[in-house]
Structures are given as C-alpha cells and as structure tokens.
C-alpha cells in the first residue's frame, strides 16, 4: 500500500506532543481517546485547518505544514473532504444546492449541470434522493449528515476527515452514516475519523489511541466484514480496557 498521509513528530501547544503515524491509501482509520485528549486537534492539524508548533505533515508527498493559508485552502478544496459533528450547512440553500455549493465554487457555474447530475447520482446512491429539494431544517439529523458526506465527495477527495460524524445522531441514524462511510471507503477513498464510539471504530481498519496528546497505541483490525463484527467488538473492547477506557 502506498503512503497517503504521513505525520512526523507533530506538536501543538500543550495539546499534542510528538505524534507520528502514517495513513495508507484506501485505509479507514479511527482516532479514539477520552475527551480533551487532543484527538480533534490532531485531526484539524493534520488536515491543515489548525496551525502546528512543530513536526511535519505530508499529503501524497506535499508538505502541508510548509504551505500558506491560501495553498492549504486550495488543498482542502481539491484533495480533502470534511465531515463535522455539527452538520454545518448553508441554511439558505436546500440539500442539493448545499451538496453542490463547493463544486460550483471550484469548477464554475458553467459546469453546474454536470455537477447537479453528479449530486443527484450520489443522492440516489445513498438513498436520500427524496430530500434533495428540502431545506436543511426540514430533514433528519442522519439525512443531513449523509448530505454533508455527499458534499465532501463531490470533489473526489483523496482523503476524508470526519470529526465525531455520529456524535450528534441517534443509533439508527449513526448506523446509516457509518454504512455510508464504509461504502465510500470500499470505493477507494481513504478516511480518517475521530470517534468516541467503539461501534463506529470497529468498522475501521485501524484504530489509534490518544491520551494527553500522545499516541499511546494502535490496533490493527483489518478490513471490516459483518460476519466478524462480534469478534472485532471484543478485540476493541479489550484493547480499550487496557487504556482504562
């Protein structure tokens, strides 16, 4: 497997301390840890949204930490996708326009027709085509989060960053969202997500554990298959218990 994201000796204030890890193409990785451990900060630092104090981050050979804010913006727009715990959307646009917004911005209005076709295809594929023309306050949390995931896919990102994507959802809605992530990952998109939920983490290939800003452990689970779900759950529970989880 080829390296996609490489983190070396990353430091940030007193939150992150000398963290290093590598994400390979096609992987789906979960970052876990208690509240305040620095996992969200780590996600924002490796995605170039937050500044670092030391260390280096490489995305496909590009050193992210040496780029200007403008260059980082362009990188996020074209090569990365983001999903947040709070489903941040433009309240004045409906669901499909929200999904299309960044693509139209990046590719120009002349491509709007193609972009709309792509968005409609994704909405169909992920089973939420019925909410396409709804305003964002008219749909459920799970539907909205899936719409946010689709928005992040519109630019065909190399990697998706997700910060507690199921944190604000009920179990049923969370399950639909995780299914969506699995589907995307199977299509070849690398995913790095922060989660509190071991049920989400067990569907990932690898789990990183952070405590007090330091990487304390790594669990390699391999590709998820529904048949081995119980076994994976036990493995992850045992592993987390070893950190006092």
């Amino acid at each position: 497997m080829q390296e996609l994201l490489k983190v070396e000796s990353l430091c940030k204030d007193n939150i992150l301390n000398n963290i290093g890890f590598t994400v390979y193409e096609g992987e789906m990785i979960a970052i876990m840890g208690p509240s305040g451990s620095g996992k969200s900060t780590l996600l924002y630092c490796v995605s170039g949204m937050d500044k670092t104090d030391g260390g280096k981050v490489f995305l496909g050979g590009t050193e992210l930490t040496s780029l200007s804010e403008e260059e980082k913006s362009e990188l996020r727009l074209n090569r990365m996708g983001f999903i947040f715990q709070q489903m941040n959307v433009l309240a004045d646009l409906n669901v499909i326009d929200n999904i299309m917004f960044t693509s139209v911005y990046a590719k120009g209005k002349k491509n709007e027709k193609k972009i709309r076709e792509k968005a409609t295809g994704l909405l169909n594929e992920f089973g939420i085509s019925d909410i396409a023309d709804h305003m964002t306050n008219e749909v459920s949390g799970g539907q909205l989060q899936r719409a946010c995931i689709l928005r992040s896919l519109m630019m065909d990102p190399e990697i998706l960053f997700a910060d507690e994507p199921t944190g604000a959802l009920n179990q049923r809605a969370a399950a639909t969202v995780i299914d969506a992530f699995l589907k995307i990952n199977r299509s070849g998109v690398t995913i790095l997500m922060v989660t509190h939920d071991s049920k989400v983490a067990l569907k990932c290939d690898r789990v990183l554990y952070i405590l007090d800003g330091e990487l304390r452990g790594e669990l390699n689970l391999g590709k998820y298959t529904p048949e081995k779900e119980e076994e994976r759950q036990q493995t992850i529970n045992t592993w987390l218990n070893s950190f006092g989880w």
Binding site: R76, L77, F82, F84, Q86, N88, L90, T102, A106
Partner: peptide, 16 residues
C-alpha cells in the same frame, strides 16, 4: 459564523 467557518474548512478563501 458557523456557515462562514464551515466554508473556510471546506477550502473557500476569505474573499470568496
């Protein structure tokens, strides 16, 4: 504020 922050996170520049 949240919308603006989100757009920034998605890669839009300040002037955009």
């Amino acid at each position: 504020r949240k919308e603006a922050g989100m757009l920034k996170a998605l890669g839009l520049r300040g002037k955009d």
